[in-house]
Design a protein around this nucleic acid. Sequence first.
DNA 1: ATCCTACATTGGACTTTGTCTAAGTCAAGA
DNA 2: TCTTGACTTAGACAAAGTCCAATGTAGGAT
Lengths: 138, 138
Amino acid sequence: MSDLLERLRGRGWRLTAQRRVVAEVLDGDHVHYTADEVHAKATDLLPEISRATVYNTLGELVSLGEILEVSTDGRAKRYDPNAHHAHQHLVCSRCGTIRDVHPSGDLLADLPAHERFGFQVSAVEVTYRGICPNCSTA
Amino acid sequence: MSDLLERLRGRGWRLTAQRRVVAEVLDGDHVHYTADEVHAKATDLLPEISRATVYNTLGELVSLGEILEVSTDGRAKRYDPNAHHAHQHLVCSRCGTIRDVHPSGDLLADLPAHERFGFQVSAVEVTYRGICPNCSTA
DNA sequence: ATCCTACATTGGACTTTGTCTAAGTCAAGA
DNA sequence: TCTTGACTTAGACAAAGTCCAATGTAGGAT
């Protein structure tokens, strides 16, 4: 993740404590926090960081293609730092836990030409839904 | 759609003008309105209908499995009356237009056992993204 | 090392989307 | 037609996100 900050500095990003903290919070696998969760965790590291800055920074990271925006439940958007490896999501219908998964096959090719309505189709997002081990035993 | 109302009456639904109007607004193919759009169109037919009733009615129709809730953009949820034929969505990245599409293949089977993390996987939602004919020429 | 300034941050007001509640209304069975 | 419990209403409230004017600061220039 520190190479992320270097990469962004190369693109003219000003390196502030706030941005460093947001990047740090988002580091890891299977991380999918809401903006408010990012803000809460960032506040632990840098108490005076504002909500607006967290939103701004997340928005910039999305624009730059460094993180992904995910909305699996129609409520708050979540942010996924795993933007450099194509993947899909598996979501627990009960507790909302999200895992990154890698389906086999070419998902885009599954949409036949006669079902494309003249669109130039360029991407596909898949959400698998089920019950996680934790919730199925409880 | 009128058989929908009959079906619901059979399930103990009280048949009110408001519910009739919401059902009427949702009738058609490739219909994916937000709650506020449904409210606006319903207001044309029945000026005194309230927002709360539209939300209530949409929620009930979803619970009864008569319509689907779709969130393709992380903003307002949309409602899809085509609940009785499995399908996925194709969304224009520019204007937001949504079409119902039918991919080939077994999408659920594309998730290998070793990528399921012990989940009981039961459903899959797919959103194809691209540019619609209208937006690509404009 | 310090200065400058364009870019970043802040807090709070505002918007959008959706939920809840208490009071009034009405569909449909008796 | 009467009655009653389900339905509807307006408006307050809540959650998620955006916007703005004022203030602060990273990092290049000196």
